[in-house]
Computed example of a mutant assay.
Amino acid sequence: MMVYPLALPARLSVGRLAQQTGVHPQLLLRFIELGLLDAERDSSGRLWLAPNAAVTVARVQRLHLGLSLNYSAIGLVLDLLDRIDELERRDRSWT
């Protein structure tokens, strides 16, 4: 299947995400177990991820390599960063 930049697939398999990011599929499964990545199972039990999951994987890797955080701690850091972004958006909407 050919993927064009303007026509992203509606979902990604773990294998496809591994190809895109260069991260081993087992590590991606670990990210899913830790709640770092959101995945859904189809009726056959296969895991599917959102097309923007590669962005999340990049954030996780950057925090892990740049700050030497373990993957469990990264979940907390990502939650805090998302909360900060939300608060900043709210603050901007008030002005």
Rank of each mutant, 00 (worst) to 15 (best):
P25E: 10
P25Y: 13
P25M: 08
P25L: 02
Q26T: 07
Q26N: 12
Q26V: 11
Q26E: 14
Q26A: 14
L27T: 11
L27C: 12
L27Q: 13
L28P: 03
L28Q: 06
L28I: 12
L29E: 05
R30Q: 15
R30M: 08
R30A: 11
F31E: 05
F31D: 07
I32D: 08
E33L: 03
E33M: 01
E33V: 02
E33G: 12
E33F: 06
L34S: 12
L34C: 07
L34G: 06
L34K: 13
G35P: 09
L36K: 08
L36D: 06
L36P: 01
L37M: 10
L37A: 14
L37K: 08
D38M: 10
A39N: 05
A39W: 04
E40Y: 10
R41G: 08
R41H: 03
R41V: 05
R41A: 06
R41F: 08
R41W: 02
D42W: 01
D42S: 08
D42H: 12
S43P: 00
S43R: 11
S43N: 06
S44F: 04
S44A: 15
S44Q: 15
S44P: 00
S44R: 09
S44E: 15
G45L: 06
G45M: 03
G45Y: 04
G45S: 07
R46W: 08
R46L: 08
R46T: 04
L47F: 00
L47V: 02
W48F: 11
W48C: 05
L49W: 12
A50S: 08
A50V: 05
P51S: 06
P51L: 07
P51V: 11
P51M: 10
N52M: 01
N52E: 13
A53S: 15
A54T: 07
A54P: 00
A54M: 06
A54K: 14
V55F: 11
V55P: 05
T56L: 09
V57K: 15
A58Q: 10
A58I: 00
A58N: 03
R59C: 12
R59Y: 11
V60Y: 07
V60G: 03
Q61W: 11
R62I: 04
L63W: 10
L63C: 11
L63M: 13
